[in-house]
C-alpha cells in the first residue's frame, strides 16, 4: 500500500474517532432527558370525561410535617395526624395547635363529640380535645397493623390489616366480636388484604362498611357479623377498581353515598348508596404518582377533604354547578 493511501485512510479514521467521541460527549450529557422505551403507560386509563367531574378543588394548604398519616374534621377545625403528632388547622390552613403522641400513629377515626380516637402501631388510644390521653389499649399482637377506626356510641370498630380482621370493641378495649372471618354460613367471603390498605366506615344507620381491597369490593355487615350486602367491580374502567388494593380509602356521606380514593391510578370518585358511579371528585391528573391513595374526611357542609401523601397537602373539594344539577 502506498503511503498516500495510508494517509487518506488515517485521516478518515481520525475524523471518525473525533466524530464518535465528540458526538457522544456533547450529545449525551448527564441530566439530558431520554425517553423510557419501557414506560408503563397508564395515561390512557387516566383519561376522564370532564363533564363527569362533580367537584372543584376550592382550597389547598401544605401540611408542615414530613409524614402525614390521616385526616379528620372536628367542627371548624381540620385535624391532621402525622407519625408523631396531631396538628390542628383552621380552614384557611393556619396551624392552631399541635400535640405529641405517645407512639407511632397510623390512622384517625372521624371525630364524634370531643373524643379523638387514634390507631397506633399495635394499640388504640383516645384523647380529649386538648391532647390529654383518655384511654389506651394495647391488646393487639405483633402482627397487627391498625389501618382504620370508626366509633359509634360505645362501640369502636378497629380494622387490623395485619391479621385481616375487623374487631368490634367497647370503649374499654374489650373485643366483643371479630367481623369478617371467612364463614360460608354467614355469607362472609373473608378479607384479602395484600397491603396495609384496609379502611372501614359507618353509614348513617350505624352499619359497618369495610373495604375488602383484594376483592375490590365494599362489604356491609350486620351487627352480628353477617354480610348484609356488598358492591364493587374489578375493572380498569372508571366505574371499577383496579390494582391489588382498592378502594384504599373511602368515606360515607350523610346521604349514604360513598367517596372512594384509589392508588395506582390515583382518583377520587363518588358512588351512590347502591354502588352506582355518580361522578368524579378528583381526576387522576390532580395527583403526582399515586403510590398512596389520599385519606378522606367529610365535613358538615359535605365538602370532601383529601390528604395528599405525595404533596403533603390538605386538599378540599366542594360540589360544583355540574354536581348540583
Amino acid at each position: 500500500m502506498k503511503r498516500k493511501h495510508i494517509n487518506i485512510i488515517l485521516v478518515i479514521l481520525a475524523l471518525a474517532i473525533v466524530f464518535i467521541i465528540g458526538k457522544d460527549f456533547i450529545g449525551n450529557k448527564a441530566g439530558k432527558n431520554m425517553d423510557n422505551p419501557y414506560k408503563l403507560d397508564v395515561d390512557q386509563f387516566k383519561k376522564i370525561d370532564s363533564t363527569t367531574v362533580l367537584y372543584n378543588e376550592i382550597k389547598t394548604f401544605q401540611v408542615n410535617d414530613s409524614s402525614p398519616k390521616g385526616i379528620a374534621v372536628a367542627g371548624k377545625q381540620i385535624l391532621v395526624l402525622t407519625e408523631k403528632q396531631l396538628i390542628r388547622y383552621d380552614y384557611s390552613g393556619k396551624e392552631l395547635s399541635r400535640f405529641e403522641l405517645p407512639d407511632t400513629a397510623n390512622c384517625i377515626a372521624p371525630v364524634t363529640k370531643d373524643q379523638i380516637w387514634i390507631g397506633m402501631l399495635h394499640s388504640v388510644a383516645s384523647f380529649d380535645a386538648n391532647g390529654k390521653l383518655l384511654t389506651r389499649w394495647k391488646n393487639f399482637d405483633e402482627n397487627s397493623v391498625i389501618t382504620s377506626l370508626a366509633v359509634s356510641g360505645k362501640t369502636v370498630y378497629v380494622a387490623d390489616a395485619g391479621n385481616r380482621i375487623v374487631y368490634q370493641c367497647n370503649t374499654n378495649g374489650e373485643i366483643l366480636s371479630k367481623i369478617g372471618e371467612k364463614n360460608e354460613q354467614k355469607g362472609v367471603p373473608g378479607y384479602i388484604i395484600p397491603s396495609p390498605c384496609f379502611d372501614l366506615a359507618l353509614d348513617d344507620n350505624g352499619f359497618l362498611w369495610v373495604a375488602n381491597t383484594g376483592r375490590h369490593s365494599l362489604e356491609n355487615y350486620n351487627h352480628d357479623g353477617s354480610l348484609r350486602t356488598a358492591w364493587g367491580e374489578s375493572s380498569v374502567k372508571i366505574d371499577g377498581f383496579i390494582g391489588c388494593c382498592n378502594p384504599a380509602q373511602f368515606a360515607i356521606l350523610p346521604d349514604n353515598s360513598f367517596v372512594t380514593a384509589e392508588k395506582g391510578i390515583p382518583r377520587i370518585k363518588l358512588y351512590d348508596q347502591h354502588g352506582v358511579l355518580q361522578g368524579i371528585v378528583a381526576a387522576p391528573q390532580l395527583f403526582d404518582n399515586g403510590w398512596y391513595a389520599p385519606d378522606l374526611a367529610i365535613d358538615v357542609n359535605q365538602r370532601i377533604l383529601a390528604l395528599d401523601f405525595d404533596r403533603k397537602q390538605v386538599r378540599i373539594f366542594e360540589k360544583n354547578v355540574n354536581g348540583n344539577k
Binding site: Y38, L40, V42, I192, S195, C244, G290
Partner: peptide
C-alpha cells in the same frame, strides 16, 4: 386466592416495567 410470582433472571432485562406496576398498584 394466592399466586406466587418468581423472576427468571436469565430473561429479565431490568427495565422496571413490572416494578412500576407493582409500586403503583401493589406493595412494591
Amino acid at each position: 386466592p394466592f399466586y406466587e410470582y418468581v423472576i427468571d433472571e436469565n430473561l429479565c432485562i431490568g427495565c422496571a416495567k413490572c416494578v412500576a406496576g407493582c409500586t403503583s398498584f401493589g406493595n412494591g
